[in-house]
Design a protein around this nucleic acid. Structure first.
Length: 507
RNA sequence: GGCCCGUUGGUCAAGGGGUUAAGACAUCUCCCUUUCACGGAGGAAUCACGAGUUCGAAUCUCGUACGGGCUACCA
């Protein structure tokens, strides 16, 4: 396979969701496998829905996960421009060609006309009537009007759209890389609008024209596009480009956790998990939607999770680096059925990636977490701490809750629990412990532990309860690494200070 | 309603005529750990249903049911 070119064509209307990132990922993997190019084209076809800043946001997300395109509106490329709003002339040219060939026609129906048509043809058997072969001769278009009438309307500046003229009785079939042979009857399809009244193309025209002009060899998109595929294939044919038509792959959908419908932003809001790659703030409403990045996901884990949501290489392996994915991925093994999204499993991937990452890899991300929590850290100490608590962190934000006590004295204690264990004998013990620690020459975990236990034996107190209190003094709660390891990192003076702090609080 | 796509434990899934039907998440039990985790051992839990083909069907065929997508001058 040569000259492999793939494209991702998001509409800049808001956040970049899971399905979008997965499509990019599969595109990217396929492009890298074949030494091809991955192209980002921005589908700003509908001015009304264009959202300020969304294009840059998409780039930021792709940069975060490391899937930067080879060609894009920002990076440029040989087939620029890559924004649909800047390619209007192309679409108009080809729409006109289709009209001249008789494969498309002008339609002058107003929105009210369409509304009237839908309500008058609506019935129990046909709840949503289409503008198709059965009714187009009853509408106001260049198929029923004489060419003189059509010309007159056109020159008067009457608003119009250009619609594809679907054949009444043809079978369109194609091979999908995931589903195999798929076929449709054209009679079932409607006369889709190709060029809108404002002169902008619809997706149907734009995707075909741009894929041709940009020499796209493989087109991956969501399964929701399957029903309109026959119209696209006919367009390739009518425009005379059939030989250059890309290979199609319709990816399965990512579904809501309960399986009822496509996963949407609202589901995330409702169930408490992100569905966007990164934080997205709607510029109009100011509403913030949380992203996987800000939730504390590693991009490696995020991509890994997405890759295996709907694909499996047939082995037991579940953890893949991006390079391993390039090696193992195959579009033929992508599943046909949609997968329900499970946030618990997503977190598991992140946990695994955190556990497997070096402290050095984690340092910048963890440091950022601490800084946004307003806690100052030093790299040497943080590196040490990361290695100690890594295993118990699922999200990057867990590092702060799991290890902030290394950097700041606990602000509060579980005082009720402490009160139950605290008594005069133990107060006496910790007084003694402070003195003993002060005189320690070697400050390391096992030396501290030995002294701690010897003193407990001397005072005849069970070590278990003392250990609990010691942990409360140093950590403030019932969590964290082994307590003597903590003391070792904290250092002599800080350890003694924390002992006396709780001590004075209790007496 | 029509058309298209799909259906293996609660979830992600392997398996594509003969298997004790892998594995992972979640869940439960136990071990380890004087915390929380990690780790280890084990348990419970699946081929949507009905016909057909076959010596034999999760696997092939056909129906049915269920789920999803589309049915816009949205993508």
């Amino acid at each position: 396979m040569k000259n492999v070119r793939l494209r991702f064509a998001p509409s800049p209307t808001g956040g970049l969701h899971l399905g979008g990132v997965r499509t990019v990922l599969y595109n990217y993997l396929f492009a890298r496998q074949h030494g091809g190019k991955f192209i980002l084209r921005i589908e700003d076809t509908d001015q009304n829905r264009y959202v300020d800043g969304a294009e840059k946001y998409i780039f930021d997300c792709l940069r975060w996960v490391g899937l930067e395109p080879d060609e894009s509106p920002i990076a440029g490329g040989p087939y620029a421009p890559y924004r649909q709003s800047e390619r209007k002339a192309f679409y108009q040219q080809y729409a006109l060609q289709l009209v001249e060939q008789g494969n498309a026609y002008y339609a002058f129906d107003t929105p009210e006309d369409l509304e009237k048509m839908r309500s008058s043809f609506k019935s129990e058997q046909n709840p949503s009537p289409q503008y198709d072969g059965k009714i187009r001769m009853k509408m106001n278009n260049s198929l029923v009007l004489s060419s003189a009438e059509t010309q007159a309307l056109l020159s008067e500046g009457t608003p119009y759209v250009i619609r594809i003229r679907m054949p009444v009785d043809e079978e369109v079939h194609f091979t999908d890389m995931i589903r195999g042979e798929v076929s449709f009857q054209t009679a079932q399809s409607d006369d889709k609008v190709l060029l809108k009244a404002d002169g902008m193309p619809t997706y149907h025209l734009a995707v075909v024209v741009d894929d041709y002009l940009m020499k796209i060899s493989h087109a991956f998109r969501g399964e929701e596009w399957l029903p309109s595929a026959p119209a696209h294939i006919l367009l390739w044919k009518y425009l005379g480009w059939e030989k250059e038509m890309p290979m199609w792959a319709h990816l399965p959908l990512i579904l809501k956790p309960d399986g009822h419908g496509k996963l949407s932003k609202r589901d995330g809001d409702k169930l408490g998990f992100p569905v966007f790659a990164m934080n997205w703030t709607d510029p109009k409403s100011g509403e913030l939607t949380e992203g996987f990045k800000e939730r504390g996901f590693l991009p490696e884990a995020f991509l890994n999770m997405l890759a295996v949501l709907g694909w499996n290489d047939g082995t037991e392996q579940e953890l893949y680096s991006i390079d391993q994915l390039v090696d193992k991925f195959s579009i033929e093994r992508v599943h046909k059925g949609g997968a329900k999204f499970d946030f618990e499993k997503a977190k598991w991937f992140n946990h695994e990636w955190i556990k497997r990452s070096t402290a050095e890899r984690l340092l910048p991300d963890v440091k950022a977490q601490f800084h946004s929590a307003g806690i100052q850290t030093t790299d040497d100490k943080l590196l040490n701490v990361i290695a100690m608590v890594r295993d118990r962190c699922t999200l990057l934000s867990d590092f702060v809750t799991q290890s902030s006590f290394f950097f700041v004295t606990p602000a509060s204690y579980d005082t009720d629990a402490v009160k139950q264990k605290w008594d005069a004998a133990k107060a006496e013990y910790f007084k003694g412990l402070s003195g003993q620690l002060q005189n320690l020459h070697h400050w390391d975990a096992s030396t501290i532990e030995t002294g701690f236990k010897e003193l407990a034996t001397t005072k005849n107190i069970k070590a278990g309860e003392l250990l609990f209190l010691f942990r409360m003094m140093l950590v403030g709660g019932k969590f964290g690494p082994p307590v003597f390891d903590i003391a070792a990192v904290l250092g002599k003076q800080e350890t003694i200070t924390r002992i006396s702090k709780l001590h004075s609080l209790m007496s």
